[in-house]
Amino acid sequence: MLKYRIIPCLLFNDKTIVKSVKFKDLRMVGDPTTVARVFNERKADEMIFLDIMASRKNKEPNFAVIEGIARECFMPLTIGGGIKNMQHVDKLFQIGADKISLNTALVKNPDLIMEIVKKYGSQAVVASIDAKKTDNGYRCFISSGNEESEYNPIELAKIAESLGAGEILLNSIDKDGTMEGYDLELIRMVSSSVGIPVIACGGCGKVEDFVSAIKIGADAVCAASIFYFVGESMISSKDYMSKKGLNMRLL
């Protein structure tokens, strides 16, 4: 049986690993390679590294830092932020990325997604969707939450799937860093409308939140604050989820 995954998400602000609240108010967490090493030792199922400043500041990915992280990582590594062309993508795969996460490009440069799928396969592309509740219902944002796109999450998820993306990283801007639980309505909506796996992200504050996200349709759960600020570990989280009847890779 396939196991549910718990994936720590490392946000990078071009200097250190940080944790945001609603995509703002960055708190410093630590040095990127040190944080990566800790999650590797704790046998996380995967790791996601997102440069949250690259796209906003129109910078390319920080290859040196990413290479340092890849070196620490004997598990699948997804890289996102600032990826604009095939040169970036080729270089990231060369230095140890396993998957590429695209957010802004999903809306602005869908051809890039198709090109990566053609060259590296669907499983190498993670479509990152940042959603927020507005007066017009849920809307998707790009450029680290700074620009509203023309799509709602279901529309964008379907576009991602049709372009060939292999997974969706579904982030709730409203819940990010609040630790008040995932946006379950958003997860239900998106995971029931596509046939590719959905990774829920944003809002996890306790182990029960992992279970709720999966029960409503997530295939994997992404979190950061719960590991940085609460002291839950991979082991305690997985034990709890397993006791609730979910298939987990126990360590």
């Binding site: 199922d45 669907s122 994997a220």
Partner: peptide, 9 residues
């Protein structure tokens, strides 16, 4: 769902 992604035995 497809792809099959994750840890399996």
């Amino acid at each position: 769902k497809i792809p099959h992604i994750g840890w399996n035995d």
